[in-house]
Nucleic acid binder design. Structure first.
Length: 673
DNA sequence: GATCCTCGAGTTCT
DNA sequence: CTCGAGGATC
């Protein structure tokens, strides 16, 4: 046998042959050898490598079977950051994008590269001297997780680049994903092994790549497609994006065959439509298409806004829709007594999750859509999150389906239901007599932005109210360990945790406390304004409706809500009881001004995920310096702080020419640079 | 009186 | 996220 004489030569020949098969199969999509043939070559190589350990190499095809488990993933700093893309949801937004590009580069018609937007996981691979050395997840765009051993098992990722003179350093970006058929097979296997099934290919790919044991990753059929490059050293970067992708393909990296060079807005929209029609027939899931200005010189001229390039945009497909049946229409009672009809649906898989409920908002909405029990309805996830009933398929309506009407009495407490003439919502008139309203009021009181009592959730509140242990918020501070520990799912340990959380909440701020009271029309922003203006609870309680209207943003309606709340003897009593139990905060002089602060009067809008801080933290930092954080972008917005996956707010900001900051920019501003 | 902006409130699922 | 409605502004 030849191997006995020259094992090195045979090993090299086998590796080259196996690599060629991989390249043909994954990059050119033209398999030559049968699976059996491939396996035979692989086994021969494995045998040789185990007989001659000195010939082993980390980039041998045999290394794709996985390595010993890691204790944890190490952070990995990307050499060049992995940016996110702005999104477009309509032709108008794409048209605006094309217009901005044309103005930016001063050309009448722009050449673009269009390609699918994969629904997978973005990753970065590093090749040094043509060898795959490290790979990492996107993370926050600057730092990801090193998942090199897992990526080695992905067969469409070449362990060595093709060609005689690969670049010294090449950083490439692409997507790891799972084909639909592989996903189906994986779930069948999971089912057979009585293990948890994955909800969609994207989750399956993500779960597989984030395995500490790369042998598990090796058993999952993951694919990889490259679509961009980061750092390149030792080779000339091509002048267009399409040439770059062609070059990457020549180096042996799989590039999406659907990519296409198109011209002008019409070219973009045609591509979008054509790919949309073939979407269901593709082997993998996509959630839109990506357009990139093809000329690299033009890309450089356009530059970046915050963390997204100005030369590229993702054009998303409309939210996925599905049909299902309305099993029942139930009525929920909210904190203010608002009755909300909710459709209970036969479980249906739409937009990546199983949906069983959808709000019908109010009586008018319900009437407009005319939803009835037994109807077949079209459901979609609005903004890809909250399920909504789009329309009713009236042809499929059962003959006897009755029109739904709001109950005349509260389904929880039986009090009369009132609907004010010019209001859209119907309300239970029971007030705090109604257990549903009492429960919601307590949940609001305990919520994170109010008193922040951890562990006081829905289940516990249900029991506390149903067993008459707690009637008002003050009772929370007076209930004992014994009452609590007797409840279901409340062993001593968790009872103590809840009591500790309640104890901690006694030390709070005036603004939080006012918000926690749940006064109608008084939310977080108004509570902060009231706390600032009055400085003390007593001054607030004594103010009449007229005085209250002197507070900015408070008009007659809100003023009346507050005055009525404060006049109610029951409310005053509960507040007194809480203070007697030790609930306290720092009070200040009336009208404490924030005007000395640097950011006084500046309005910020936060969007996307910031790498180094939560939205809450960012908000606190801004407010600490007198700035205001608003929910939506308008002409009055001074700054938009954009993180990863920023959506429509970023687009709006660009449209209005509002200054966009990333996290670093925000921190600089906060430090007064 | 009309219009624009914000805020409040309700909601889903993992 | 979205709707409805309160408040500010012209």
């Amino acid at each position: 046998m030849a191997a006995a004489k020259a094992p090195l030569a045979r090993v090299q020949a086998l590796r080259a042959e196996l690599e060629r098969h991989n390249y043909l199969y994954y990059v050119l999509d033209q398999p030559l050898a049968s699976d059996a043939e491939y396996d035979r070559l692989l086994r021969e190589l494995q045998q040789l490598e185990s007989d001659h350990p000195e010939l082993a190499s980390p980039d041998s095809p045999t290394q794709r079977v996985g390595a010993t488990p890691l204790p944890q993933f190490e952070p990995f700093a990307h050499r060049t950051p992995m940016l996110s893309l702005s999104n477009a949801f309509s032709e108008e937004e794409v048209s605006a994008f094309d217009r901005r590009v044309r103005e930016g580069v001063e050309l009448d018609t722009i050449e673009y590269l269009a390609e699918p937007k994969f629904d997978g996981l973005a990753i970065s691979l590093v090749y040094e001297q043509g060898r795959f050395t490290r790979g990492a997840t996107r993370g926050d765009g600057y730092t990801g997780e090193d998942v090199t051993p897992n990526l080695r098992t992905v067969k469409s990722i070449p362990l060595r680049l093709r060609g005689k003179a690969p670049p010294q350093l090449l950083e490439v970006r692409g997507e790891v994903l799972m084909y639909r058929r592989d996903f189906d097979a994986l779930n069948a296997r999971q089912r057979a092994n009585e293990e948890k099934e994955f909800v969609n290919p994207r989750n399956a790919a993500a779960g597989s790549l984030r395995q500490l044991d790369s042998r598990i990753t090796a058993s999952r059929a993951l694919r990889f497609y490259v679509y961009a490059a980061g750092a390149i050293e030792g080779a000339a970067a091509p002048a267009t994006h399409s040439a770059l992708e062609d070059w990457l393909q020549q180096l042996g990296l799989p590039v999406c065959p659907e990519r296409k060079v198109v011209r002008g807005l019409q070219g973009l929209l045609d591509y979008y439509r054509q790919l949309g029609e073939r979407r269901a027939a593709l082997a993998y899931q996509i959630d839109g298409v990506v357009y990139k200005v093809n000329s690299v010189a033009a890309q450089q001229r356009l530059g970046f806004v915050a963390r997204a390039p100005r030369f590229a945009i993702a054009h998303k497909f409309p939210a996925e829709e599905a049909n299902t049946e309305v099993l029942a229409i139930e009525v929920q009672v909210g904190r203010t007594g608002a009755l909300t009809p909710v459709a209970r649906l036969a479980p249906v898989f739409v937009g990546g999750v199983t949906v069983t409920n959808a709000t019908l908002h109010n009586e008018d909405e319900l009437r407009r859509k005319d939803v009835r029990i037994g109807d077949t309805v079209v459901v979609r996830r609005a903004g890809d999150v909250i399920p909504e009933v789009v329309t009713v398929l009236k042809d499929l309506r059962p003959r006897n389906a009755a029109e739904f009407s709001m109950p005349a009495t509260c389904p929880v407490c039986g009090s009369a239901v009132l609907r004010l003439p010019d209001e859209a919502v119907a309300r239970c008139s029971g007030g705090l007599i109604c257990p549903a309203q009492r429960k919601q009021a307590l949940l609001h009181f305990a919520s994170r932005r109010a008193m922040d009592i951890e562990g006081l959730g829905e289940k516990l509140v249900d029991q506390l109210v149903d067993n008459d242990i707690v009637k008002t918020a003050a009772d929370l501070y007076r209930m004992g360990f014994v009452a609590l520990a007797g409840l279901e799912r409340m062993a001593q340990k968790s009872a103590q945790n809840v009591l500790d959380a309640i104890e901690r909440s006694k030390s709070t701020t005036l603004a939080r406390f006012i918000y926690a009271l749940g006064i109608r029309n008084v939310g977080e922003a108004t509570a902060k304004e009231l706390a600032r203006y009055f400085g003390s609870l007593d001054r607030l309680m004594q103010a009449d409706a007229e005085m209250l209207q002197l507070v900015p943003d408070i008009g007659p309606v809100v003023a009346l809500s507050i005055a009525q709340f404060c006049a109610e003897a029951h409310n005053r009593e509960v507040i007194e009881q809480m203070r007697a139990c030790g609930v306290h905060w720092q009070e200040g002089p009336p009208g404490a001004a924030a005007n000395a602060a640097r950011l006084a009067g500046k309005v910020f809008v936060l969007t996307g995920t910031l790498p180094g801080m939560s939205r809450e933290q960012a908000k606190e930092l801004i407010e600490a310096q007198g700035g205001k954080v608003a929910g939506s972008v308008s002409g009055k917005t001074d700054y938009v702080v954009a993180g990863a996956e920023a959506g429509s707010k970023l687009a709006k900001a660009e449209q209005l020419g509002v200054t966009v900051l990333d996290e670093a920019g925000l921190l600089q501003l906060l430090e007064g640079l």
